[in-house]
């Protein structure tokens, strides 16, 4: 098998073998694509199904390639191994133009097809709005943000439809290391409450360094850039309590910079908003501050970090005891 060329006679069985192998490979790929949905958190936004379907598609194609290549490698390892003390060379094949063209053109077509498909998805999702650089010589302060209308509107920003179903803009303010959400009616919260199935507009603002607004259950992520206001929108599609995590490394207690997103019915949301408006402002729970205070109490050991920003004053604070779905 290894050293003798194959004759025409046994070409039939080997074609059959290849066909069977490709069939098995396709089956494995289809199975893996189906499995891939189980590696992801629940789908809680309208974007999530698009992301998951694309991921499943790529998992399927990827499995096909990985299994296919591995099978060929395994075949050669099983049947083309040199016996011990055998110093013979293999078949001196230097190349094959047809094969080389095939494995240049097919991958090219496959990636272009995936790219084409993805550009379409990008157009559908369109979560990112405009970005406006702030013309301030001084760093942003909480005070300068208090007047919610004072922020310049982003150029080419997402039009907030007059359609009353849309919510926002909710200002998302990230600090080292806390999240604060300011609703159009002035309610401040360190937990993000959103009504289900309604388009939500956000304006993302960072007060110090880069942060990332990331909700895995929504499959969405957007960095917050100091000195810029970024418009963003999304539509939650499933009720529940999900994690919002800081995804762009922001220093010292980066890992603690997470909070919850609560997606609830419109009525529940309105009730929450009304109750929050009546609640007094108080310092939010803030994990980074707790660790920092503990560190100070223990003699401020550890490596350099800026101290955490004071916890934001909010009407509604997040509660670390709550458990989240994803």
């Amino acid at each position: 098998m290894t050293s003798t060329g194959r004759s025409q006679a046994n070409r039939g069985p080997s074609l059959l073998l290849v066909a069977a192998g490709l069939g098995l490979d396709a089956l494995a790929s289809w199975t893996m694509a189906q499995q891939s949905y189980r590696w992801l958190p629940v789908q809680a936004s309208t974007a999530a199904p698009y992301v998951d379907n694309l991921f499943a598609l790529e998992t399927g194609i990827g499995t096909f390639i990985l299994v296919g290549c591995s099978a060929v490698i395994a075949w050669t390892l099983l049947f083309n191994r040199a016996p011990k003390y055998d110093l013979d060379d293999g078949d001196p094949i230097e190349g094959n133009l047809t094969l080389e063209i095939i494995w240049t053109v097919i991958p090219l077509l496959v990636v272009l097809a995936i790219a084409w498909h993805t550009i379409g998805i990008n157009r559908t999702l369109a979560t990112l709005g405009g970005k406006q650089r702030l013309a301030t010589a001084a760093p942003l302060t909480s005070a300068s943000l208090l007047a919610t209308g004072s922020l310049p509107m982003a150029a080419g920003s997402l039009p907030i439809a007059t359609d009353s179903e849309d919510v926002g803009p909710i200002q998302v303010i990230a600090r080292q290391w806390s999240w604060e959400f300011i609703y159009p009616n002035g309610v401040r919260s360190s937990e993000l409450h959103l009504p289900v199935d309604r388009q939500i507009y956000f304006r993302l603002i960072s007060m110090d360094v880069l942060h990332g607004f990331y909700i895995p259950a929504f499959r969405l992520k957007q960095d917050l850039i100091p000195g810029s206001v970024i418009d963003y929108r999304l539509t939650p599609s499933r009720q529940g309590r999900y994690r919002l995590r800081d995804s762009m490394f922001s220093g010292g207690y980066f890992a603690t910079n997470q909070t919850d997103v609560v997606v609830e019915t419109g009525a529940e949301f309105e009730a929450w908003l009304a109750a929050a408006e009546r609640a007094p402002l108080r310092p939010s729970f803030n994990a980074a501050n707790e660790i920092w205070q503990q560190r100070l109490a223990e003699g401020n050991r550890g490596w350099a970090t800026v101290p955490p920003a004071p916890p934001p004053e909010v009407n509604v604070s997040l509660d670390p005891q709550n458990s989240h779905e994803a």
Binding site: N80, A82, D88, D89, I93, N96, L99
Partner: peptide, 13 residues
């Protein structure tokens, strides 16, 4: 693919 094709019908050690 070129590496895999290099293995094909070789005399692998």
């Amino acid at each position: 693919f070129a590496w895999i094709a290099t293995l094909w019908r070789g005399s692998i050690r």
